[in-house]
Design a protein around this nucleic acid. Sequence first.
DNA 1: TATTGTTATACTCTATAACTATA
DNA 2: TATAGTTATAGAGTATAACAATA
Lengths: 160, 160
Amino acid sequence: MSGMEFDLESRLSDDDHQALKLWLRLLSCTTRIEDQIRQRLRADFGTTLPRFDLLAQLERHPDGLAMRELSKRLMVTGGNVTGITDQLEAEGLVLRETHPDDRRSFIVKLTPQGLRQFKRMAATHEAWIVELFAGWTPAQKTQVQELLAQLKTHLKDNTP
Amino acid sequence: MSGMEFDLESRLSDDDHQALKLWLRLLSCTTRIEDQIRQRLRADFGTTLPRFDLLAQLERHPDGLAMRELSKRLMVTGGNVTGITDQLEAEGLVLRETHPDDRRSFIVKLTPQGLRQFKRMAATHEAWIVELFAGWTPAQKTQVQELLAQLKTHLKDNTP
DNA sequence: TATTGTTATACTCTATAACTATA
DNA sequence: TATAGTTATAGAGTATAACAATA
């Protein structure tokens, strides 16, 4: 489905509605970039965004994370974390260790192979992002970054 | 899954990587807003974003659209348009008319009920958006709007 | 009783491919 | 041959709920 002529932004029929126009454009850009990332992760590494995100969390936490910590951080329910972890474990990228203090719990960690593999993917991933955002100058990036920070605060306040 | 402490932005571990940070923040904000919209469409109107988007296209085209036109505009494959149209037709919101010149084709149109229902949803939807973006001044909205237009051009050029 | 993790199930959204009727 | 639409199927990605083991 590449090279389409239309997209979500064409939903709008009239010229007012500033917030709505802005939202449709924001959604359109973000979706387009996300689709690119998903396609490239699949084509180049045979993986998916949720799997990549789980590995990224583990890379930030070399001592590992319990399943429920992963669930909170990835904002998905526990059953999903079990499924993704099963896949990554089968690929030898992560392992479950018993929790020393709580026998209900597991600590999930990157294997050495998982760390190597993630680092390789992360570097490529960052290069894709840099390329996709090359349409903005560093100053413009900073500007949007700050505006988004402000918006995020508002979203947090309004939608608990 | 409301009231989470973490989100995608926490994926990043260090302070450089301007484009990557920007992307994670953009994705985080957009996802959060989109989740809100999906939840509210379901709770208040028992519908989904793709169904809403299809109705929106039809409202822009009172003479109706062929299935393949809908497919192009919604950027999904034909089988999906058939499915969504079936649902909306079963709910009495759209109807298929025979094409006068091409007996392979249908023209999909809003029913009067569909138009009334869409207008009600669209007004509420816009109010949600206005509220969610209330963290930005009109000038800031304009600014982001223009920056996104620029980014979109770059994306189009780079990812055909 | 509450919590951690697993299992089972289901739903939405999407794509691909085979099929039909028509052009 | 090519196109419009349908059908069937598959696979992400997600949620809910019942469950076992442990706290």
